[in-house]
Write a protein that binds this DNA or RNA. Structure first.
Length: 924
RNA sequence: GCCGAAGUGGCGGAACAGGCAGACGCGCACGACUCAAAAUCGUGUACCCUCCGGGUAUGUGGGUUCGAUUCCCACCUUCGGCACCA
């Protein structure tokens, strides 16, 4: 080694210097250039919480590396940044520190801008957008007006989730967990009834379910699909005895004949009219009780069904059966129509309800597997019952003095014969193929119509005048575990006990019944969604004011476009009182009606911040533009977003909203294209060293600023790419980053320390092979977002290059090529050290505007391969052979192996398998 | 309960057409340099056995195949989402 001293790798010195130069040179400014293909790389915009978290680095620096890679591949890359600056945390933090939310927010933004610059990311800061700037929220308001004018925004009184701590309404998506707590502060939510603004997301439910134009992770697509929750079925019209229509939604119209009662949500509008005088008191009490309960109580672990009978009846439209109408809190006013037909034989919840309140259970769907079930109680059996069943080959088991029988349909007749002989008369019953058979007096009585239910009960009484028997029978019927199993199932089998539809096979039952309902005008095909319209009203200060005016004469009037933005006043009491702070401002809400000029009042609620973040990728295109939300020429060139990166936690919120927003804007003629973001990739989460989620209270927070000071941004970037699969994340390791630091120091030394000597041809050939093989792997991994293997491949190549240098490769053209390619591959990962080394080698500024190298396939080709020789699938030998060896030659060489001969013991192989360039498997 | 993902050394992870399991890094052990330590460099490091050479290993049990971490079936565990959704 040379004695000439080289400077040590000092990231603190070189990183600041290059960042300043890149900034001054506008190296990362991206402008419209139709002569080059564009690539819009977007990373989710941060909330200005005050400090850049390691999670921000984990999300952004690999995204930056990929954007840089795309740039070197010849794309004109846009990689913008901004701040999602409105929202609750600003107010919460402001309350704590008694500082105005605006001051708090902009102070944080200033701080985070500085921190973001230390990443060395290729952000185009000219395009920065801040959602709380009036120039930004002016257009958030404009979009609101557009949605309103196109009938996609509407106002209604509705019960909403309310956080008593934050004193605000929450979107459904902001209520988390089993105990239904506030996403922000963790407080359990309650309900409140308010006039609220909604966007009609449900109008796009079906289109949102289509993912054929986008390359998004399966995981996100599944989450969105479940969130939207499309159910297909039928709407069916029941009629009350008062003559009102109750519409229900069901996914199982084929079970309509089994509807033995109805249940309405306690809040259902028809409850009052249905309730009989006798029941009025209990019904009202139940409703009061339901309302008093918070959601936590209502959905607590105790799943015991509650409910009360209204005293009213309705008619089942398919068979005219008069069925009782109940109310129960397991029926939700917020899903479907708030009313259900209850089919206890084929719906678990209805079954539980029927068991508890003794309501009839009528199976109307046969078991598709054809198995029948029976049950005989102790005391009813004459000796020999069990042996007789076994002799007949009928599967049965004895348990708790009872006999359970599960038999195939074809054994039914045999079973009945045996039962007649061996069971005491009048003491048993069974279910065969979902048909109730009562065997009394050695005769069979089939329950084939609902009316026979009453006949059975009266017959029971006849037979057992002391009523005890009837009681026992009922317990067996409703309360016994086996009978549950026999009675209740949710499969799709042939219809039974369903008049003309009896016998209809399970696979066609639903469409046939639906068709018939439509022709009879008793119902229609219907689709229901779990997704609800997007509630955007917030009774908070720090948000974009909803640009609406209420006039006594003209009603709702949107603020005219030329009057936008509706400015958020600074002199407001922003501490939460439960009222919208803007309502308490002395003058702000008073205005004049844009239509009639009379006195009017402004809407005092502000918008959900997800509204602001639904279109920020559009504002990035031209934050300077004043004639619209974005400059058309910029849109036409850059949109749609090619690569969107961010956290999975936005799968059912932001990522649904922004797709809805884009589609709505398309239909309003504001923009073109069906999808805003073509490709989505999610990163995982960085955990603390204790494998727990990082939190201040746990004291396991890793602060990126400290790391950057200690090791440099390049090392932090590289370690974040290396330490885990990017989409998975994992625990931080302070030992792990040391390994990456060592690697960068070795790169530094390898490039700068002079080497000497003359390497032989095979060293040179080997060096070039490794370089180009690595290039191939790194290129692929960048395309696939597999950052961890990029770093390991570069480490591996460094090891190889160090060896080659020892062997005297330095100074050759192959060495120069290797270093050149190495630095280019390193540039996206570690932009500072690669730029510095590039400059020290006297290469033209900047490495980041260089092109990505091309793989030299000839150089990457293997000359010699290790042929693996297996005997019966086990590796027994390895032979070095030429890479272009023929199949015949390979097999011959393998069979000639001494080891193989040993295992063959002189026998001829039964089969010899050859996998080109890899192995020979000798099957003995 | 329903939907989804994942289980590989002491640890993070690799294996990208079904074809050498454990790349790369951390940690650990030994060695070199040093008065010494740190740093750096080198060597080794899945487990078991008699250490020549074998055997066993990718959550568990089956299956397909000449050959399975990879494909199929069942189960177990962990994580994430939804949850009385009719």
């Amino acid at each position: 080694m040379s004695h000439k001293a080289i400077a040590n790798y000092n990231p603190a010195e070189i990183e600041g210097r290059w960042q300043a130069k890149w900034e001054a040179d506008g190296l990362y400014c991206s402008d419209v250039d139709p002569s080059r293909p564009k690539h819009y790389a977007l990373t989710m915009l941060p909330y200005p919480s005050g400090d850049l978290h390691i999670g921000h680095w984990y999300a952004m620096t690999p995204s930056d590396a990929r954007a840089r890679f795309m740039r070197m591949r010849g794309y004109n890359v846009l990689f913008p940044i901004g701040f999602d600056a409105f929202g609750l945390p600003a107010e919460n933090a402001a309350i704590q520190h008694n500082i105005h939310p605006k001051v708090w927010t902009y102070r944080n933004i200033e701080r985070m801008r500085k921190q973001l610059r230390t990443m060395g990311a290729m952000f185009d800061w000219r395009r920065e957008a801040v959602s709380s700037d009036p120039e930004y929220y002016r257009w958030s308001q404009w979009f609101f007006s557009m949605l309103y004018k196109h009938g996609l925004a509407y106002r209604k009184m509705s019960p909403v989730d309310w956080c008593p701590n934050c004193n605000t309404t929450l979107a459904r998506e902001q209520v988390w967990g089993e105990d239904r707590h506030c996403e922000r502060c963790g407080t359990p939510v309650t309900k409140k009834n308010l006039e609220q603004w909604f966007f009609k997301t449900t109008a796009y439910a079906d289109e949102l379910l289509k993912y054929d134009q986008i390359d998004w992770p399966e995981r996100v697509r599944v989450l969105q699909t479940n969130w939207i929750g499309r159910s297909e079925g039928a709407a069916v019209y029941f009629t009350t005895e008062q003559g009102d229509t109750i519409e229900v939604f069901t996914t199982r119209p084929d079970t309509l004949w089994g509807a033995t009662f109805m249940v309405l949500a306690p809040e259902h509008p028809l409850v009052a009219r249905l309730t009989s005088t006798e029941q009025r008191e209990v019904v009202e009490e139940y409703i009061q009780q339901t309302l008093r309960q918070s959601d936590i109580q209502r959905e607590s672990a105790e799943k015991e069904k509650t409910g009360v009978f209204t005293g009213g009846f309705a008619l089942n439209p398919v068979n005219g059966r008069r069925i009782p109408v109940w109310i129960a809190d397991y029926v939700l006013m917020t899903y479907g129509t708030g009313a259900i037909m209850a089919v206890p034989a084929h719906d678990e919840r209805d079954f539980a309800f029927a068991l508890k309140f003794g309501l009839p259970i009528l199976p109307v769907i046969d078991r598709p597997d054809g198995l029948t079930k029976s049950y005989a109680v102790a005391g009813s059996m004459r000796p020999g019952f069990l042996p007789a069943l076994k002799a007949a080959g009928i599967p049965c088991e004895e348990q708790d003095g009872a006999v359970k029988v599960t038999m195939p349909a074809e054994k039914t007749q045999a079973y009945i014969e045996i039962a007649k002989e061996h069971l005491n008369e009048g003491y048993w019953n069974e279910i065969v193929g979902s048909q109730w058979l009562f065997l009394f007096d050695n005769g069979i009585w089939e329950w084939e119509s609902p009316e026979s239910e009453a006949r059975i009960l009266s017959r029971c009484k006849e037979m057992a005048p002391n009523v005890a028997f009837a009681r026992t029978l009922m317990e067996m019927l409703w309360g016994n575990e086996f009978y549950r199993d026999a009675l209740f199932h949710t499969e799709y089998g042939a219809m039974i006990h369903s008049d003309r539809f009896s016998g209809t096979p399970g696979d066609t039952a639903k469409p046939q019944v639906t068709q018939w309902l439509e022709t009879e005008r008793k119902g229609k095909h219907a689709v229901n969604y779990r997704l609800r319209d997007w509630l955007i009203s917030r009774q908070r200060y720090w948000g974009a004011p909803i640009p609406m005016i209420y006039c006594a004469e003209c009603g709702e009037v949107p603020v005219p476009d030329e009057d936008l933005p509706v400015l958020l006043p600074d002199d407001v009491e922003w501490k939460p009182t439960g009222e919208s702070p803007l309502k308490l401002h002395p003058t702000w809400r008073h205005t004049t009606c844009p239509q009639c000029g009379g006195p009017a009042e402004r809407e005092t609620d502000t918008m959900d911040t997800f509204m602001c973040s639904s279109w920020y990728h559009l504002r990035y295109l031209s934050p300077w533009y004043r004639q619209g939300p974005f400059e058309p020429a910029e849109f036409d060139y850059w949109m749609p977003v090619d690569t969107y990166t961010g956290g999975i936690e936005h799968a059912t919120m932001h990522l649904i909203y922004t797709r809805f927003f884009h589609k709505a804007c398309r239909d309003m003629g504001i923009l073109t294209g069906d999808e805003p973001m073509l490709q989505l990739r999610n990163q995982g989460m960085v955990l603390g060293e204790d494998s727990e989620k990082m939190s201040k209270s746990r004291g396991n927070v890793v602060a990126p600023d400290n790391l950057v000071n200690a090791f440099g941004a390049d090392a932090v970037r590289a370690y974040l790419m290396f330490f885990a699969r990017w989409d998975q994340g994992g625990p931080w390791s302070s030992g792990g980053i040391e390994g990456v630091i060592r690697w960068l120091r070795r790169v530094w030394a390898m490039v700068l320390e002079p080497g000497r000597g003359q390497a032989d041809a095979s060293t040179i050939r080997g060096l070039r092979r490794k370089v180009h093989q690595t290039l191939r792997a790194v290129t692929r991994d960048f395309n696939e977002f597999e950052f961890n293997t990029i770093v390991s491949a570069l480490m591996e190549l460094l090891n190889e290059m160090s060896k080659a240098k020892q062997l005297g490769a330095a100074g050759t053209s192959a060495w120069d090529e290797a270093v050149d390619v190495y630095l280019r591959m390193l540039a996206p990962v570690a932009p500072h050290i690669s730029e510095e080394l590039w400059a020290q080698l006297g290469k033209p500024y900047s490495i980041h505007t260089q092109s990505w190298p091309e793989v030299d396939e000839e150089a990457a080709r293997e000359d010699e391969i290790t042929l693996v020789v297996q005997v019966n699938g086990k590796v027994r030998d390895r032979i070095a052979v030429s890479a272009d060896i023929s199949e015949e030659e390979a097999k011959t060489r393998a069979l000639a192996s001494e080891v193989v001969q040993k295992y063959l013991e002189g026998r001829a192989p039964r089969q010899v398998i050859y996998v080109r360039g890899r192995l020979v498997n000798v099957v003995a």
